[in-house]
């Protein structure tokens, strides 16, 4: 037998060696670009660029501002023009910010859903997950960036409307809001709305379809109240009351201490409720994101 051997080009490569020898087991090209160990900060910077660089962010937040400020000022002006010095005696003047924020929350819901679901619609999610293979980090970065944006924008607009309304309604007998009233009607309600948006972001990540997730979230926002209106029979009154008290609009109104009902959530309850709900959905959304294919 001579030393001649038939060509077997790939045979040695067929058995990969996971335990490679130390000292550059994988030769090849070395880039002059410094290698950086990535962390959450990188993902946050990336998500911040993403949210800034699409027009849907400008649209949803623009419409939100117009609704909150516009409706808030209109409500203030309307009430003021129809009141004398006693008509609002003892009432909280901040509560007229409610209507604008209720409608505006639909914009925050939309932006929240788009932050995750639009990446599935466009295929961007695969690029995102390739650039950042830690799915926990992707979800955390999206959540933190979105929550911060939603909170700051809601705080600025609701704070502005609150200040204007209080000065508008000075001569209608409305009481001077306490520090705690102010805090709840600005910081409190902004936290609530930002969490509602975060919940939408998570639903967007689970549903992976923008229109579907937005529809679900608007249903969550309005359906309990609408259902309650149609439960006229006495036998259902318990269900009706529960639906009514825990509907999102009623929870929002609790931040102005003028709950539409006597029982049900009060004080800071709505915030704890949505915080618990969002935390539970976050855990579920992460578990799904982790186990599903992108």
């Amino acid at each position: 037998m001579s030393t001649h051997q038939p060509p077997m080009p790939q045979a040695p490569a067929a058995a990969p060696h996971w335990q490679a020898a130390p000292g550059g087991p994988y030769p090849g090209y070395t880039s002059p670009i410094p290698i950086v160990r990535t962390h959450l900060g990188h993902a946050l910077a990336s998500e911040w660029t993403k949210i800034k660089s699409v027009r849907s962010t400008m649209w949803t937040l623009g419409v939100f501002t117009v609704l909150v400020v516009g409706i808030g000022l209109m409500a203030g002006a309307l009430v003021e023009s129809h009141s004398d010095s006693e008509s609002l005696s003892g009432e909280n003047p901040l509560s007229f910010g409610f209507f604008g924020l209720l409608l505006g929350s639909i914009c925050i819901i939309t932006l929240g859903v788009l932050t995750t679901a639009s990446e599935y619609g466009t295929g961007m999610i695969r690029t995102t997950m390739t650039a950042c293979p830690s799915r926990a980090r992707v979800l955390a970065a999206k959540s933190i960036v979105f929550f911060t944006v939603a909170f700051v924008v809601t705080l600025l607009t609701s704070g502005f409307v609150a200040m204007v309304q209080v000065s508008m309604l000075e001569n209608t007998g409305a009481r001077t809001p306490s520090g705690s009233d102010w805090f709840k009607a600005t910081v409190g309600i902004s936290l609530y709305i930002a969490l509602l948006g975060l919940l939408s972001l998570l639903i967007g990540s689970v549903i992976r379809h923008s229109a579907g997730a937005i529809t679900i979230m608007i249903g969550v926002l309005l359906a309990p109240l609408v259902l309650a209106l149609f439960m006229a029979t006495e036998s259902l009154s318990n269900v009706r009351d529960w639906l009514f008290e825990y509907s999102i609009p009623n929870q929002l109104s609790v931040f102005y201490a003028n709950s539409l009902s006597e029982s049900g959530p009060s004080g800071w309850d709505p915030l704890w409720i949505i915080l618990g709900l969002t935390a539970a959905v976050y855990a579920g959304a992460y578990a799904l994101l982790h186990s599903r294919d992108v």
């Binding site: 993403k50 660089s53 295929g123 690029t127």
Partner: peptide
């Protein structure tokens, strides 16, 4: 296509670059 159509080419690449430093 793994690209969000509403984003410019520059911003698309920028957010990728940032995610990896």
């Amino acid at each position: 296509k793994g690209v969000h159509g509403g984003r410019s080419a520059y911003n698309h690449l920028l957010c990728l670059a940032q995610s990896n430093g």
